[in-house]
Amino acid sequence: MVKIGNLELGDFPLLLAPMEDVSDPPFRAVCKQNGADLMYTEFISSEGLIRDAAKSVAKLDIFDYEKPIGIQIFGNEIQSMREAAAIVAEARPDILDINYGCPVSKVACKGAGAGILLDIDKMVSMTAEIVKAVNIPVTVKTRLGWDSNTIRIVEVAERLQDVGIQAISIHARTRAQMYKGEADWSYLNKVKENQRLHIPVFGNGDIDSPEKALEYKNKYNVDGMMIGRASIGYPWIFNEIKHFLATGEKLAAPGLEERIAVTKKHLDFSVEWKGPKLGILEMRRHYTNYFRGMPNFKQYRAEMVTAETYEHVCEVLEQVSDVYADHVF
């Protein structure tokens, strides 16, 4: 049984990665219904929380049916992160997660996210202060290092454990790699081989099929996996991996009506939570993924991503249901 603090997550939990502009409540809802064991919010700016910025505060929205859920914060000032952590705790998540992995320049080049990998001492000090500031489990999401010359992840994991974090998720790339090249999970195996380390280690990066999940589980000895990009438009991946790990057999891919039903459910929640205008607008990034692999789908995709009303999107989904009724995935 994998545990974070007193939180029991099963024998090999699958986590939904915190993804900016993706891991909002509507998306988390469909992932939860399709097998995600633990989910994280989009990352939230510590400075935004302290200033009570509307966009940052909105990301604190969590719901009982999502539990267990973690709220993730990022920032480069220790005092601001302490204050933000206290605000997060008031939202009553199960976990507070610290983002030490975001590679985008506007975050990392200001010393936040993966930028803090250039200052491990500050990373440890900041973490220690956040752990002291809250009474819920603190976890960390990070990368192997800033670049191939600064990979100190074995040391980092141990030092962060020693100041109180209760789990670590490691994206098996450096900041310099961004999301390119192959993730190198061999470093995660080295982290797990450290006999002083006793907290759960979750692997992240390139898990896009049940077969790969099983291979990496057996090869790298991680305690669970965090799945990001592969879940976008395909929340079924969580249950597919679970079934394959348990039985060695692959579940059939979801059919057209299932894809339409989940798209509609996602759309409904998006409109309910964000309002009709923003809810429609921010769903556009998901349609291509929900219907990936459909032949001659360009015209329907174009119509969905330009539709401005809920009714219009639903009309297009009905057309897709009729036109592709016999399509097999």
Rank of each mutant, 00 (worst) to 15 (best):
M1Q: 07
E8Y: 10
A17G: 01
E20A: 15
V22Y: 00
V22N: 00
D24K: 08
D24H: 08
V30C: 06
C31L: 09
Q33M: 13
D37K: 06
L38I: 03
Y40A: 10
E42Y: 08
S46W: 08
E47M: 10
G48R: 07
L49M: 05
A54E: 14
A54M: 11
V57E: 01
K59L: 15
D61K: 15
D64C: 10
Y65T: 11
E66D: 06
E66S: 09
P68T: 11
P68F: 13
G70S: 03
F74T: 05
N76C: 15
N76M: 14
S80Y: 13
M81D: 10
A85M: 09
V88P: 01
E90K: 11
E90L: 12
D97C: 09
I98Y: 02
N99S: 10
P103M: 09
V104S: 10
S105H: 08
K106E: 14
A108R: 03
A108M: 07
A114S: 10
I116N: 08
I116A: 12
D121M: 12
A128N: 03
A128S: 12
I130Y: 07
I130A: 05
K132P: 00
V134Q: 04
V138R: 04
T139I: 07
T142F: 01
L144C: 02
D147T: 02
I151E: 02
I153W: 04
V154I: 06
I168E: 01
I168T: 00
S169L: 10
H171K: 10
H171C: 12
T174P: 00
R175P: 00
R175K: 15
A176G: 04
Q177E: 12
K180A: 15
E182T: 15
A183R: 05
D184G: 04
D184E: 14
S186K: 09
S186Y: 08
S186M: 11
L188Y: 02
N189S: 13
V191G: 02
K192M: 11
R196F: 11
R196E: 13
L197G: 00
L197S: 02
H198P: 01
H198R: 14
H198E: 12
P200K: 05
F202R: 02
D208G: 12
P210Q: 09
K212V: 11
A213H: 05
N221Y: 14
G224M: 05
M225Y: 06
M226Y: 04
G228E: 09
S231W: 07
E240P: 01
T247P: 01
T247C: 12
G248H: 02
G248N: 03
G248K: 01
A253V: 04
P254Y: 05
E257Y: 11
E257A: 13
R259K: 13
I260W: 02
A261T: 13
T263V: 06
K265S: 15
F269L: 15
V271T: 00
V271L: 07
W273Q: 13
G275N: 00
K277V: 15
G279F: 10
L281E: 14
R285G: 03
N289Q: 15
F291Y: 02
N296C: 08
Y300K: 03
R301Y: 12
A302D: 13
M304N: 07
T306N: 09
E308K: 14
Y310D: 11
E311I: 11
H312C: 02
H312K: 11
V313C: 10
S321A: 14
D322N: 12
V323H: 06
Y324W: 07
Y324L: 10
